[in-house]
Design a protein around this nucleic acid. Sequence first.
DNA 1: CGGTATCCTGCACGATACTG
DNA 2: CAGTATCGTGCAGGATACCG
Lengths: 140, 140
Amino acid sequence: MEDGTSPEPSSCAVTEDDPFQWDAREDCEVRQILDRIADKWSLLVIALLERRTMRFTELKREIDGVSQRMLTVTLRQLERDGLVHRKVHATVPPRVDYSLTDMGCTLHDTIKPLVTWTEAHQQQIIAARASYDRAAAPPA
Amino acid sequence: MEDGTSPEPSSCAVTEDDPFQWDAREDCEVRQILDRIADKWSLLVIALLERRTMRFTELKREIDGVSQRMLTVTLRQLERDGLVHRKVHATVPPRVDYSLTDMGCTLHDTIKPLVTWTEAHQQQIIAARASYDRAAAPPA
DNA sequence: CGGTATCCTGCACGATACTG
DNA sequence: CAGTATCGTGCAGGATACCG
């Protein structure tokens, strides 16, 4: 395939004084943490809990397609990372409330722009994909 | 386990007028796109390309642990999504330059705070994990 | 209700070999 | 140099059953 089909490159600044350069080591803590919070369900859980405290079953009902196992695993990881608070009520039947911790809220603040960006650019991305696929299409 | 070991919940605002509420449907476009850009390598590639145009081999050398296959796959996806530009030079040996598109740059702008957040909170997260693990420790 | 424990499967990904 | 093609497999994650 030629390159003529790609969108133009940008000329975004190569800011030399940009302190943003991350550690590319495989065992880098930052990468591990990012992998964790950027996984399939964590973002969704954080987004939902930012709105209000929710029970386990509520979360399960809200999140289309999540298995009980994955929801449990996700919540446990977020709790372990100090992002989500788990409150067990000693009632019967049991009741467990999940909510964001303060740190979880600050994380949400940084995630939100990412989701907003995605929403704002989804049409552009869909168009880019169609264009790419057309260019690579089977020359029948 | 009791709940006494969890960090306190936050009281972050339940802003009712908050328009941020995302589509939890499994086939939601936003979720698919997020899954794509939040994967193990994409973030790293975007971060590196924001600094400067890079060749395939350079990227491979910079990113510890990535296989040739995964780098290729990642770059193709990002190209297809219109986030990365691929420029093939008709020289021999071949030379392929990768750079961010304008859209890729805007994405980087929203990713950067997330990385910054992670760097800023990694100690807190490590501490939270240690605390959690201690609480759940084998009661020998 | 809100989980664990167990089993089983698919496919994501690495390794390797080949090519324009 | 910058890929494709093919094969093998580890483990993420679904399904199911059971429990406090």
